[in-house]
Design a protein around this nucleic acid. Structure first.
Lengths: 210, 210
DNA sequence: ATATTAAAATGGTCTGACCACTAACCGAAT
DNA sequence: ATTCGGTTAGTGGTCAGACCATTTTAATAT
């Protein structure tokens, strides 16, 4: 028993993860702030550097940190794009999982539209978004904007997260004209109608999938 | 340039990840199937064992694989809600206001009630829950049950985490009689009325707080 | 002061050594 | 032949140390 001052069966890299999390909370680190170097963490957390790296690589894949060679490790706003391709292999097979994911995304967007409707917000200028090549990107950009209007940062985060995961899934091709109509309704502030159309698009996508 | 047969700037562990993915696809591995050992992968993929481990630890954290000491590494069904917990620790840390948190919780519960209403589900026997001492516990237990009825694990998990986090920073004082009424409506399957009451309770709590 | 160069710090990777756990194997006792 | 118990090989878990590649910083020369 040379190592294993560890008591709990938890693996070192997982404990490291917890400690890093606490470190972030205690020091109130925010996006872009730098974490201690791997060697420093190794000493401070009393773990081998390889274990530190296992932890860091894991949350790097998740998109929670960013690593810059020669500089250091930095906190960053969550972006799902790294794990996306990877997850596709695994998510794709499970049909229920896929539908759960799509449903949650839909429901969150529905909430967003409803809140916009209640608050009678002004959406501002969104004409730029239609320059996006892919419909998928347009959708993401559009809702990113809409969510930002309802002023609930957490809700936006959750949706963004879910939407990121959704990208791993083969999106059923959206009817372009239908989507254009949706877009117009948003632009005109007809959130109620937009919500209905949104729902019907979602419903029809369910049928196409199954 | 001793190592670095790598050309692309991609890190080794990321390439390993891709290769593993392909391996899984090519061999059509399914849940519970065993992956080659770390040492085997190290040879076959032409990478150091530490790099292999970085890759494996990362997808282990995601819940894609399961590792059993002394046995090996096994494929496992991926469910998004596995990683939700992990991500939540980083997402929830950025919550800016209590109000935003409470709103998300409310909105998720609203979704739940609406879905129950649409699906005209049977809630089953919930009389036991009123034995709970605290109203807070009752609320949690009740919605845990309701969410389980709508059969979306991901949604349940998200709500559960948000609700759990809410409890740590907020002790809601609910009007007992009002809540009892809410409870009765649920019991009778009047989800629409319940949703309205739910909303009004939320609204009034906002006033009390501010 | 500015430009150049050297040194230090940091992430990236590999190797090799142990430890701890598991399962399979094999011989001895029944 | 069956069962029990120990050995052994295979596997994950962890660490230490060595290099490499990149970036930043400090020292030095101009």
């Amino acid at each position: 028993m040379r190592y294993m001052t560890n008591r709990s069966k938890m693996k070192v890299y997982q404990e490291v993860l917890n400690k890093i999390r606490h470190f972030i909370e205690d020091n109130e680190l925010k996006d872009g702030d730098r974490l201690p170097s791997e060697r420093e963490l190794s000493e401070q957390l009393n773990a081998g550097r390889s274990s530190i790296r296992e932890a860091l690589r894991a949350i790097e894949l998740l998109g929670l940190i960013e690593t810059r060679h020669g500089e250091g490790t930095f906190l960053r706003t969550y972006r799902p794009y790294h794990s996306v391709e990877l997850l596709s292999t695994f998510v794709l097979r499970e049909v229920e999982t896929k539908q759960e994911l799509l449903e949650v995304k839909f429901l969150l967007e529905k909430i967003c539209l409803e809140k916009l409707n209640d608050g009678s917000c002004d959406v501002g200028d969104i004409s730029d978004f239609f320059n996006e090549k892919s419909a998928c990107n347009l959708h993401t950009q559009l809702f990113l904007h809409l969510f930002s209007k309802i002023e609930n940062h957490l809700l936006l985060k959750i949706w963004h997260l879910v939407a990121g995961f959704t990208e791993t899934i083969d999106q059923p091709r959206v009817d372009d004209s239908q989507y254009h109509q949706f877009y117009q309704l948003i632009k005109e502030g007809q959130f109620n109608d937009a919500a209905n159309l949104h729902a019907s698009i979602y419903q029809s996508s369910l049928i196409n999938t199954s």
